[in-house]
Nucleic acid binder design. Structure first.
Lengths: 242, 242
DNA sequence: CGGTGCCTTGATTTTCATCAACACCTGTGG
DNA sequence: CCACAGGTGTTGATGAAAATCAAGGCACCG
């Protein structure tokens, strides 16, 4: 979907790649050229790690294509998935939190292409480019709000409602229309879903089986198509509409 | 503990009130005087609401004294407590998230004194006062990190561990040394704790009773003293040390 | 074609919510 | 000054939800 990407080189990249994205939409061509010239482009295979929790935060990132999964690992080795990031979004923006290490691990949920810049440029970006600060704040606000929703869900909803809400969230954020419904556009396992909803892969499997029998979803290995979103909304309960 | 506070007036307030606080620690006297002159001071009774979820975010706040409880209400009327805010902290900083409504409700958990400023000054503060932006970012980072911890806890830990971790968090953030241990410095009910940990007041009551029998805590109506924090740490499990 | 990772499904067990009842403290108003 | 109401806290009995235990099947990759 994206033109040829050579790691480390963005000369071939068109400025129009950035002009539509909110953090840069207010800028003119020369400004965007400057930004691109300072950027490093890179491709990540599915499953590879962009940066790890606790690592020195030396760069901040923009996701051009693919999906990033933000993960934390507990001392006992369990993983929990904090959120997913889609194309066009900033991530790894530790400088916006005045942090010098990344608070979580970022893994490519599917093949990804990123741009990144050294953190020392963060201050320049915020100061020089109108809209950049606002947009990164907005990103933060959205993530904080989403985390607040997750806490509320985990604290008050039953497993079935949480899993339904989780599917809906993914469908909304990165759904792709297919013949029979809307497909989640990146590979995802029962285990992954359990790590998002604080349950077990067994329970998720049972729920998906039941929903498949009822014609709400269709799924094959690592792929899920939601065929009746409205029924999922009902299942996700009264808090789903927030 | 604070000098006489008259709502709306800060003339009597000493500049030294702010000089020690991180958001303002880099500023000189005249700057702080300017900031104070633009501020509105106000006292809140225990239980009163500072601002409500969804309300237009017209002011941002600094807590001088007391404890603020940040609360969300689900469509079904259940409350969940997102976090507590202690003296010296900024709150209601919707502008830092590029939001124009408050994302949650702020209630005085104990008698509180605040300073506040109209949001239109936010931009000035960030631009004119060195350290202010960094500090508000740091606040955001800390809250985001804390929320991430809560999600991890809710998703992976048992109720007993979550309640233990919750008590420890409050003891760390606003504990006061007393004869027999460390007391949580604001009134708190079993119900409150259940709203923080996603459980029921019954379960919290049972846990506290058990811990009291084992000499880990002492509690009277709305007050809790932790007498053996180290044993709570053990109970809070391997993730407690994060 | 063998192995690894992913998925399914039944049986059992555990945890915790729910239901129910009551005791206690504190402040209020007759 | 006492009664009483409302918010708070305790504790037992019961049941439901979901984790855990267990076993096997299926798809994809090398």
């Amino acid at each position: 979907m994206l033109p040829q990407i050579r790691n480390g080189s963005v000369n071939k990249l068109d400025e129009t790649l950035l002009t539509r994205l909110p953090p840069f939409s207010l800028l003119d061509r020369p400004q965007i050229r400057t930004i691109l010239d300072q950027a490093t482009s890179r491709r990540y295979d599915e499953g590879s790690t962009v940066f790890g929790e606790g690592m020195a935060a030396d760069r901040f990132y923009l996701l051009l294509d693919g999906t990033i999964r933000v993960v934390r690992t507990t001392p006992t080795g369990e993983q929990i998935i904090a959120l997913h990031i889609g194309p066009g979004q900033l991530f790894g923006i530790a400088p916006a939190l005045a942090r010098d290490t990344y608070p979580a691990t970022a893994v490519a949920a599917a093949e990804c292409v990123t741009l990144s810049w050294p953190v020392r440029l963060w201050g320049d970006f915020v100061a020089s480019y109108p809209g950049f600060a606002t947009e990164s704040n907005r990103t933060l606000g959205a993530r904080l709000g989403e985390m607040q929703n997750r806490i509320t869900e985990l604290a008050t909803q039953q497993v079935e409602q949480r899993v339904a809400a989780c599917l809906l969230r993914m469908v909304n954020q990165s759904g792709r229309k297919v013949a029979t419904g809307i497909e989640i556009s990146f590979p995802i396992t029962r285990q992954n879903i359990s790590e998002m909803t604080g349950t077990t892969l067994h329970t998720v499997s049972r729920l998906l089986s039941a929903w498949e029998r009822e014609g709400i979803v269709e799924s094959t290995r690592r792929r899920i198509v939601v065929t009746a979103p409205h029924r999922l909304v009902v299942l996700s309960g009264p808090a789903g509409q927030v």
